[in-house]
Design a protein around this nucleic acid. Structure first.
Length: 294
DNA sequence: ATCCAGGGCGGGT
DNA sequence: ACCCGCCCTGGA
């Protein structure tokens, strides 16, 4: 089906957009700045813009944007050019768990998010629960006060740059309830500003080098590095093992008494260059259905 | 009040 | 290479 874009007064309408379900995209654990509205749509901030996304039947309504922003920014962000039907077809043939997971989260897409925002967000995510992570990121953005965007009578705040966070760290980082992760954020910030790690160049690295480089940042271990690779750098052979994925691997795939790294290697061997996509479908299915929970 | 969930770090072996 | 105790916050 061909992609068609229709311009409206305050947004655009897109038809022919397959494998796109806002609920699946925004609730599968990859992002923290999108919130569900009463009408089932989602509103979020990215690239200093506020967008509202709503699915109605076979069409998707993108509110508060233009054709040029959609084509220049959001197509990329929502990974519109990728054929998810083909990916899902390959995955569902692998085993029954993926078949069920792909069926359940059929509208998942991997967002291509800003690498700095993703890095800070997943440093905050370590040993932390999703509602709290969201609150901390919102508070950090609000306190940094870098850029305010109005939408629907509400104020939204762009995610602050390394320079802004560094300059106002006492105000924003120390007061956003990040706990012991606050120091990791401040130290990572300094490393980025000093060009000790160049986030913008990481996408050019091979996966192994990219992972090693990310893990030089304080607060970035194996799992957080894999999240940054998968959710910002399009390294689709990354396979983040969090508690839910651990439950999937041990209970569904019967690989118990295995270290987290062994589980990751097991998944890479089994799912290959589609491991990252597999992780998202399995994670979403496991968390929504409480797979393997005690 | 006490317990628990959630990954990285640093110090062991 | 693996293991363990600790780190902070909010909700049960």
């Amino acid at each position: 089906m061909e992609l068609k874009i229709y311009e409206e007064k305050k947004g655009i309408i897109v038809s022919g957009l397959n494998d796109f379900e806002p609920r699946h995209i925004f609730e599968c654990g990859q992002c923290f700045r999108w919130d569900r509205e009463e009408d089932g749509s989602y509103t979020g901030v990215a690239h200093s813009r506020v967008l509202n996304v709503k699915k109605e039947g076979d069409i998707v309504i993108f509110n508060n944007t233009s054709r040029s922003d959609f084509e220049g920014i959001w197509m990329d962000y929502f990974d519109i050019g990728r054929d998810y039907s083909a990916i899902k077809e390959k995955l569902r043939k692998l085993d029954e768990h993926l078949e069920r997971s792909v069926e359940f989260g059929y509208g998942i897409r991997l967002l291509k998010q800003d690498v700095w925002e993703t890095t800070v967000s997943f440093i905050i995510s370590a040993n932390n629960a999703i509602p709290k992570i969201k609150k901390t990121i919102d508070t950090l953005s609000y306190l940094a006060n870098e850029e305010i965007i109005e939408y629907g009578g509400r104020k939204f705040y762009a995610f602050p740059s390394p320079e802004t966070i560094h300059m106002f760290h006492e105000k924003c980082v120390d007061n956003c309830k990040a706990g012991y992760r606050a120091q990791y954020i401040k130290d990572s910030c300094s490393m980025i500003i000093n060009r000790d790690v160049d986030l913008e160049r990481l996408a050019e690295f091979g996966s192994h080098e990219c992972r090693k480089e990310l893990m030089r940042l304080p607060g970035v271990g194996p799992k957080v590095a894999d999240c940054i690779m998968l959710f910002a750098l399009q390294k689709f052979d990354a396979f983040p093992v969090d508690v839910w994925v651990k439950r999937v691997i041990s209970s569904l795939y019967n690989q118990e008494d295995m270290s987290l790294n062994k589980m990751r290697e097991f998944a890479l061997g089994r799912f290959g260059d589609l491991a990252g996509f597999a992780q998202q479908y399995l994670f979403y299915y496991a968390r929504e259905n409480g797979v393997g929970r005690k």
